[in-house]
Amino acid sequence: MDLFIAYITSHHTPTAGILVVTDIFGFEAPVLRKLVDMLTSYGCYVVVPDFFNKDPYVPPHIGD
């Protein structure tokens, strides 16, 4: 059985639900987490699934 990983956050009394689909950088991007936490503060239940199975795109370092 495979597990499905997701970042889930919720307001204590949510009035709406939001499913956030990520880009190639995955669900652990710091800016994305800040955005999701902000949506939670507006009274939402937010789910961000990990579609890349903990293997997001990592850009090469310029100059290496």
Rank of each mutant, 00 (worst) to 15 (best):
G17N: 14
G43S: 00
R33N: 13
V36T: 12
F25V: 11
V21L: 12
S10P: 03
G43R: 01
V46A: 01
S41K: 14
V46K: 04
I8M: 08
V21Q: 04
G26D: 07
S41Y: 00
L39V: 07
T15E: 08
P14M: 01
K34I: 10
K34Y: 06
T15C: 02
R33F: 05
I18M: 04
T9H: 05
I8E: 13
I5Q: 15
D23T: 04
H11Q: 05
G17E: 10
L35I: 05
I8D: 08
V31I: 13
V36Q: 10
H12A: 06
G17T: 01
R33G: 01
T15Q: 12
T13W: 06
D23M: 07
A29L: 08
Y7L: 02
V36E: 00
Y7K: 02
C44E: 00
M38Q: 12
V20E: 00
F25A: 14
H11A: 14
L39K: 02
T15P: 00
V46H: 07
E28N: 15
P14N: 12
A16P: 03
Y45Q: 02
K34T: 15
K34C: 08
T13P: 00
L35F: 11
T40M: 07
Y42D: 01
Y7S: 05
I5T: 08
A29R: 12
K34V: 05
F27A: 08
V36N: 03
L19P: 10
E28V: 06
L39N: 05
L32Q: 15
L19E: 01
C44L: 07
V21I: 10
L39T: 01
L32S: 11
S41M: 08
P14R: 00
Y7E: 03
A16Y: 06
M38P: 10
L35R: 09
T22V: 12
K34S: 14
Y42R: 05
G17L: 07
M38F: 09
L35E: 07
C44N: 03
V46I: 07
F27K: 08
V20K: 01
V31R: 15
Y42W: 00
L32T: 10
M38S: 07
D23G: 15
L32I: 12
I24K: 10
T15W: 09
V36I: 09
Y7N: 15
T9C: 11
T9I: 02
M38Y: 09
I5E: 15
Y7H: 11
S41R: 07
A6Y: 10
A16K: 11
H11L: 01
F25D: 03
A29G: 07
Y42I: 06
T9R: 10
T9Q: 06
T22K: 00
V20H: 10
R33T: 12
V21T: 14
I5H: 14
V36P: 08
L35P: 06
R33E: 09
